[in-house]
Amino acid sequence: MRRLAIAFFAFLIPAALFAQDDLMNLLNSDAAPDINYTTATFKSTRILNGHSIERMVPGQLDFRISHRFGTLNSGSYNLWGLDQSNIHFSLEYGIMKWLMVGVGRGSYEKTFDGFAKFSVLRQSKGDRVMPVSVSVMTSAALMSQKWTDPTRANYFSSRMSYVAQVLVARKFSQAFSFQLTPTYVHRNLVTTALDPNDIFAMGAGGRLKLSKRISLNAEYYYVANPKTYMSTQIYNPLSVGIDIETGGHVFQLMLTNSVAMIEKGFVGETTGSWRKGDIHFGFNISRVFTLKKHK
């Protein structure tokens, strides 16, 4: 009888030990499809000058203030460019999970701009594997500067320019993300007949996280149009900077050879050269406000 009792307990003990694991297995056995979407490919909706695949979630308003100062090679008299500044500010809002819009104003050619960014694919792993995130960005800009020659027939449409971009990004690891950005810029009016109305460019940008709150970013656009015969010498824009995140703000500090903060300006109209020292210090500040609660 005693032996029977011992045998009985010997069976009971492992059963009790494994009971919780059994329950855990029961939970996992018919778990719902598990799709793990990649988040925070970039810290901000901009890599530096150009857009990243990130967008505002619905109900969140991003107020951005950006400055690009004068060139470093302008010397100590201009405090290496800090005496001079170009400004761009914008209000950007998430409408749907897949759509954000924004309006802005920049001092570069006194331009008003508006954009819409659509999220098409999201990088994910688990039950649905998607190697990249893809967004589409379209924008229109209205130049409001006074006409250089008011005597000739100037049309309102001549003030407009348009941009279309496909943003393809992959977060390779927690620390490293990379994005390719084929870009098309159309300018209704250009300075001379030598300048193309349509500009094609390929952008590439990435970020490397240095710590949880600081990342090193770089961004380059290769302009495919031949630059030899244009009326002004233009260069490919290159920007290098860091993102610093402090709770509700993201600060982006950078060195760049372009002054404009919209695609139309920095993709086809960057006149500064890194080699000559036409480097601008600049920053973007992003402050996010929650207008509608996120659920």
């Binding site: 009790a16 009971a19 919780q20 329950l23 855990m24 029961l26 939970l27 996992n28 778990a31 598990d34 793990n36 979407y37 988040t39 505002m56 979630v57 969140q60 509700g248 996010v288 929650t290 609660k293 996120h294 659920k295």
Partner: peptide, 26 residues
């Protein structure tokens, strides 16, 4: 997700961290 075995009192829970939602997306 959770299971409780009423006969033994054993219970387990499992939660996906990304399923925790905040009012502020940031």
């Amino acid at each position: 997700a959770g299971v409780i075995d009423a006969s033994t009192g054993d219970l387990v829970f499992q939660a996906l961290i990304k399923s925790f939602h905040f009012d502020r997306a940031l």
